Amino acid sequence: MFYPNSPQTSPQLTQIPYGQQYAMMQRQIQQPYHPFATTEPQARLYPYHYQGPIQQEQGGFITQQSTAASPQYVQMRVTPVDQSIMSGYPNQTANGSSSSSFNYNIHPQQQQQQQQQQQQLRHHAMPVGSVPLQDDRYRKQLIVNYLAPDVTSTDLHELFSRFGELDGARIIYDKQTNMSKGYGFVYFCHAEDAKEAVERMSGYEFHGKWLKVGYSTNPLNIVPSNSSPYVHAGSRGAAG
């Protein structure tokens, strides 16, 4: 039997160049792979992502010199942007860049009308829970959420009447099932009393439920100042 490094198959040491006398086997001759043993700084910083320098080929596509990437890492192929796409944008300079302001050559009167329309939209648009300043009635009506099913309009009136005089209180019921929808409205005579009720009743436990109280901004629920107070009856038909 002959071994790869046996004296019968191995040459004389004098015939082997210096430095390879003890590297006779194939696994010894093959050098191990060192990912950080390279002179390129990109490979030292990113050993798993770097795959060699990027070269520009004919046709405008950018390719990489090395083989496919590892399945664990996804390499994105980048193509140059066609400058003709950006030619339609206004205020574009000769080098292809555009300024931040756009001039669509709008007539001054049209621009003024658009600004007025935007101001009107901001004036009428009102986020949930906010209180408008032009109508004091919005500051007097509250919406009470997360009410228990057994709470009546009379219970709601008695709960909030300790903060001040009320114009009314009612629970909203479903017309088909005649069941409470879980929320109601309270109408105060003074805005200061309503503000105190919002601050003190939010998070209050009532009939096993934690109440959420806020201003009601729905104009359909506003009680006119010259109208008669609501009837605080315990029956659902009268309260709904």
Rank of each mutant, 00 (worst) to 15 (best):
N95K: 08
T39H: 14
V151Y: 10
R200H: 03
L45K: 00
V151I: 11
P71K: 11
V131S: 04
R162A: 11
T14H: 15
N5F: 06
Y50G: 03
P53F: 15
K212G: 01
Q134F: 01
F102A: 07
E205G: 07
H34F: 15
S228A: 10
Y50T: 00
V81Q: 14
R44L: 13
D150R: 08
Q15K: 08
F61V: 02
E205W: 10
Y48E: 12
E57T: 13
F2P: 04
Q120W: 02
D155K: 00
T154M: 08
P4G: 02
M201C: 14
Q92T: 07
V198F: 02
P17I: 14
A68H: 02
Q118N: 09
D150A: 12
R139Y: 05
A37I: 14
G19Y: 12
A23T: 09
F2H: 13
S87Y: 12
I171V: 03
P219F: 06
P41N: 10
Q31A: 07
Q119K: 01
D193Y: 08
G234N: 15
Q110N: 06
E199I: 07
P41H: 13
N105L: 12
S225Q: 12
Q8I: 11
I171F: 15
Q31M: 15
M25C: 00
S70P: 11
E158Q: 05
F185P: 11
H123P: 09
V144T: 05
T177S: 04
A148Q: 03
G52D: 03
P7R: 05
Q8C: 03
T177Q: 04
Q64I: 14
Y204G: 03
R122F: 13
Q116C: 03
H190T: 01
Q118T: 13
Q141R: 01
P4R: 09
Q112L: 06
I62M: 15
Q15E: 12
A233Q: 04
V131H: 01
D82S: 05
D155E: 01
Q141N: 03
L147P: 11
S6W: 05
Q64S: 08
A37F: 07
A194D: 10
D150Q: 13
H232A: 09
T67D: 02
N95T: 07
N95W: 04
W210I: 14
R137A: 13
L142T: 13
E57P: 04
Q15H: 00
N178I: 08
S87P: 12
L142F: 14
G234T: 07
E40C: 13
S87N: 07
Q111W: 12
Q75S: 11
F163D: 11
K212D: 02
T67M: 04
Q110S: 09
P4H: 04
L166G: 08
L45I: 09
Y89N: 03
G214Y: 01
E196R: 06
N218H: 08
S161Y: 06
H123S: 01
Y204N: 01
E192M: 05
S98M: 00
N95F: 15
Q109D: 15
T9H: 03
P17Q: 11
S97V: 06
A68K: 00
Q30R: 01
Q112C: 03
Q114E: 04
I62A: 02
Q56Y: 02
L220W: 06
M179A: 02
Y215C: 01
G60H: 00
E199A: 05
Q83G: 10
T177W: 11
Y33K: 11
S6V: 06
H190M: 00
D82Q: 12
N178V: 02
Q64H: 12
P90I: 03
T93R: 08
S235D: 10
H232D: 15
G59R: 05
G164L: 06
P132D: 02
G203T: 04
M24C: 10
Q72L: 14
F185S: 01
S202C: 01
Q8K: 00
R137L: 07
A238F: 00
P149C: 00
S84V: 05
I62T: 01
Y173Q: 04
Q56V: 14
G203E: 01
P132W: 13
E205Q: 15
